[in-house]
């Protein structure tokens, strides 16, 4: 079993570095955007109650936008994972799968 060898390999380190960077940024963006909703409706109701179109107010549009932002982040993640993470992981798998047999 050469798990430590794989863990030290350039390919694996590269995979982890690009993956962690993406994950950290994506989680920060989505957390900030999500928690902005309860904080703004909780602390700034006057602003959030502003009507934008007819009776539709900022609070509803902000809540609705959360769905689209979540979908976009998920879509970007899937794209990046398919294009960048998967090929690297496959490369590592091919390289080591023979050497892993006991």
């Amino acid at each position: 079993m050469r798990w430590d060898k794989i863990a030290q390999s350039e390919d694996f380190k590269h995979l982890i570095s690009i993956k962690s960077r993406f994950v950290v940024i994506a989680i920060i963006i989505s957390s900030v955007y999500y928690f902005a909703l309860p904080l703004s409706v909780g602390y700034f109701p006057k602003i959030m109650n502003q009507k934008v179109i007819g009776s539709i107010n900022l609070a509803y549009l902000f809540a609705l936008s959360q769905f689209f932002v979540a979908w976009i982040i998920a879509g970007v993640y899937a794209r990046v994972a398919n294009r960048h993470f998967d090929p690297l992981a496959d490369k590592i798998k091919k390289q080591y799968v023979g050497g892993l047999e006991k």
Partner: peptide, 13 residues
């Protein structure tokens, strides 16, 4: 941890 980390990120094994 290294084993789990490699497995979790690559799907090896």
């Amino acid at each position: 941890f290294e084993e789990l980390y490699v497995r979790a990120n690559t799907g090896l094994g």
